[in-house]
Design a protein around this nucleic acid. Sequence first.
RNA 1: GGGCAGGUGGCGGAAUUGGUAGACGCGCUAGGUUUAGGACCUAGUGUCCUCGCGACGUGAGGGUUCGAGUCCCUCUCUGCCCACCA
Length: 817
Amino acid sequence: MTMVPYNPSTIEEKWKARWKDMGIFEVDIAGTRPFYCLVEFPYPSGEGLHVGHTRSYTALDVVARKKRMEGENVLFPMGWDAFGLPAENFALKTGRHPAETTEKNIARYREQLQSLGLSFDWSREVSTIDPSYYKWTQWIVTKLFDTGLAYKKKTQVNWCTSCNVVLANEEVEGGVCERCGGEVIGKEKEQWMLEITAYAQRLIDDLDQVSYPARVKKQQIDWIGKSKGALIQFSLQNTDRTIEVFTTRPDTLFGVTYLVLAPEHPLVKDIVVEDKKDEVSAYITQTRKKSQQERIAQGDIKTGVWTGSYASHPATGEALPVWIGDYVLMEYGTGAVMAVPAHDQRDYEFAHAYNLPVRPVIESDNTPQNEAYEGEGTLINSGEYSGKTSQEARNTITKDFGEEKVIYKLRDWVFARQRYWGEPMPLVFCVTCKEQIEKGDTEGRTQGEIRNPGWMSVTQEQLPVILPDIKEYKTTEDGESPLARVDEWVKTTCPRCGGAAQRETDTMPQWAGSSWYYIRYIDSQNNTSLGKKELLDKWLPVDWYNGGMEHTTLHLLYSRFWHKFLYDQGVISSPEPYMKRTSHGLILGEGGEKMSKSKGNVINPDDIVKEFGADALRLYILFIGPFEESIPWNNNGLIGMERFLKRVWNLYQTVSFVDKGDGTIESETQKTLKKVSHDIDALKYNTAIAALMSLFKIYEEKKNEISKESAKLFLLLLSPFAPFIAEELWETVCHETNSIQKSEWPSVDEKKIQTEQVTIAIQVNGKMRGTVTVPPASNEDVVWEEAIQQKQVALYIEGKDIKKKIFVKDKILNIVL
RNA sequence: GGGCAGGUGGCGGAAUUGGUAGACGCGCUAGGUUUAGGACCUAGUGUCCUCGCGACGUGAGGGUUCGAGUCCCUCUCUGCCCACCA
């Protein structure tokens, strides 16, 4: 027999074509035993696939392949999150339409993914930029609007003064434009918001139902940031107005010595006294100019200005000066705080800077210098409440002076971008309808229409609202979306009264399309609904979803929110989208730093496949280290994988397998089967592959005693990791006619694992002095008799008193002297 | 400042969860082999020495235990995420 050398590219081309012809990875969507295995779909960037993608995708590909072999009906789909800034920025530079460049990138990504042998079901591919897809993204938004969960609000957008364009937060670096280095200022704009905060509690509670890594759950809970506290009113002196504050420490009410409002607080303009007006407005202008970066960099330095007004303490009537300070955030709580400098570090620093009084009201043993005591304790200086504990006082003071209140750090979702390359909002504005609603005629109006007078969603028949083809991608001078320039598109008719109306010209953020894509895969061609209810009920929730840690508080939270909304709407029957979530660690550059174009340390998977083959790349990316940890890339590691594959290839080419093989091979193969099965489920690919390598060494040692059965078993175990070589040897050496993917994943034969001998460690005073080999389950006496035969053991115990012997069956015998 | 990971050979990492530390891969050393290539094969490869049936050894120090990389306490360093949230 002449030996054919291992040539990955030949066999990979062959099997890619075969698999495609066989349609072997296409799911039977109507079939039984559904298993939905999902990876985050990529943004098809101009740089092509990143090795980081291959880690996530290969990992779940192994799961998908094993599950199929175990008889599950596996849905493992792929698609494109294709709206986004880089394509639009590229268009700004070159004038080439984003659709054109995106299509090209998608084609390249598709080819790259296929070359890795990933077993995606390409018949269900979706793309967020496809009108037949975003029709349903828009449909969901119309429902959110109709339900009253969308509203317009004035918020700040980042405006680059040199590009004259609105920037996303991630495009602002250190207060300047990432692309041109120009100054970035805040610009006020009315924008659509989605009321995710209405789901805050459920987003916390339902984490109990799902299996996410603990750190992911914790991060989401912290991000949502639930606080229990009280709302307390402080009446302003000389007016009938009140300032409402939120506090988590009502027990410190008697320690309040002043109040602070956020600079943006609406009451500010009303309460500033005449001769303070200049000073206050100067302060407000100054803080508005401060970038987020500066505010953080300043750290502990608190600034503020007195309004000249006083409020009355609700219990004592004492006059409390009302200040303005930018350490108070308008977006959190009520935008106003009651300052208790004795028991809040920030208030303490502020009071210190402006010489405001500090009044301790909680007893503390050793109050450190220059610090507030933030702990709890017994109340002092608190009138009738003195002597109570913090806990008691919290309840009674809340009852007596305010009301209980729960608030969240989570903010509503700014659901608008003044950009071109995104889904158009399916909303129109009609002046006639606005007037009607404002007159109080709200008959037949949706919650959304009442909440946003004049605005309404388009009808389902009018969907999709197609993104028009344009030539000029720049934002308009006043920061409107480029779509605002397309008159014939903006002008439309009112879906209610048929009069003249205008479309919303902002587009959706990139997170929109990715918030529900996993639903669409199930019934990707459906033109009358998001998906057939019966199918959605069967396939949702997703059984296993893998993606990056960086999506924990954005994508993962957003899609849980939309899923819950769709659940409330009766579109789907599960309250949670993903049953199990795992997260892969980053692949770093060879030096241990992040891979980036500018550092020039990016690894292109194409080059690796060309040089070493897809199987070697797959093995390496899985073998590289623990799946959830960040690991530096090392090209040498690939050489090891290539060697292993070559050795496997050569052995199968040159050895003739026998009918009855060696017993050790059989039992070791069974042990490895058990370990590999377990390790795949636990995402411990590095040890699974190590076990396969160790097993293979035994095959090489006893290469003339390998049974056909063991030879086949080894290929079955190898096939999820290195499917190409496994298929090829399965066919050409084992002469199997059906794809290895169609074979059954073997079950462990425990009988064969039973070994005839076990090695037991012998310790003297806890130190290793030798080993003995005995039959399994031997008792202490047998092991002892064997142990004292050992010269080195005997030497150590000679002439000594044996206090006791510790014996652990099949493991260890420790002789204590 | 807060939270979460983590610290084991020259490197990436194993260790059945308290029971033979360093599996597996890379690298390195020696020898072999070859029509010379990131080839292949064999042996070795934690540290130290007086080279043994030796001592030491999992960031540092202490503790529990017959026995600790693993559990407890104190400290230290690194990475990631969040960051004036009242």
